[in-house]
Computed example of a mutant assay.
Amino acid sequence: MNTYKITFTRENGTVGSDNFTAPSEAQARRDFKEVYRHGNGTITSVELVSSDAPATKRQERAALEKIRKIVDELGPDSYIATAFDGCFKDAEANIENDWALSMKDRWLTSDRELNDANGTIEELRDKLAESEKDYEAAHATAHQIAEEKDAEIASLKSRLLADDDLADISRLLSKTVADLGKEVNDAAARIVEVADQPESAAFRNAVKDHRAAKADLSHWTEVLTRVNTAKGRA
């Protein structure tokens, strides 16, 4: 588009100028007459200021409407109408929003995304093949580990005591705990008997025996508890 500087004289004799963007000088003169139709200005000169000016939105809208009418006259099933399907909406959006939408860009973007997707698919296929190999190796390793664990479990089971053995040990420990309880009580009674002789050997021996019996009682009571727990799980 061109930009023309139009200089004009008003009815009162004053001189003015205005710029008009148009494809030709003739169109610029027509646009001037439309804008100044009530002022009766007389054009005195027209100067080409620029030859690369962008069209105004009003001009874009007018051009779009002309193109739309031409395409409409050809009918909705014409080759051109088919090619222009969706383009008019993009053109309207571009004019109103200063956008740069186009069907070509959409196609190029879709084609690029499709190529990227195909590349991703191939990459995923390669990864899947590697994963399958890793799975097979992991499966073989897991099978080997399972066999080793089964052997370990069988070995451990062979070392476990039978239920009858656990019952016999529980009875033996119960008797031991009962005997130790009696020893603790006997030692405590001896301490009481010689409590008025804390420096005597009898007192010291009684205290020593009481402590030893009490420690043994605690230890074997815990062992008995563990044996009974094991017997309950068997």
Rank of each mutant, 00 (worst) to 15 (best):
Y4P: 07
Y4E: 02
F8K: 05
R10I: 01
V15C: 08
F20S: 04
A28G: 04
R29L: 10
D31K: 02
K33H: 14
T42C: 02
E47D: 08
P54S: 12
K66D: 08
K66I: 03
K69V: 15
I70V: 14
D72Q: 06
E73S: 14
T82S: 12
G86C: 05
K89Y: 07
A91S: 09
E92N: 02
N97R: 04
D98G: 08
A100H: 12
S102D: 06
S102C: 05
M103R: 13
T109R: 09
R112F: 13
E113P: 12
L114V: 11
N115Q: 11
N118F: 06
N118I: 07
T120N: 13
L124W: 06
R125K: 14
K127S: 12
K127I: 04
A137E: 03
I153P: 05
I153L: 06
A154M: 04
L156F: 12
L161N: 12
A167H: 07
S170C: 13
R171M: 07
A178L: 05
A178S: 11
D179P: 01
L180N: 09
G181R: 00
E183F: 07
V184D: 02
V184N: 02
N185L: 08
A188R: 03
D196Y: 03
P198L: 01
S200I: 05
N205V: 02
R211T: 14
A213R: 00
A213Q: 00
S218T: 11
A230L: 09
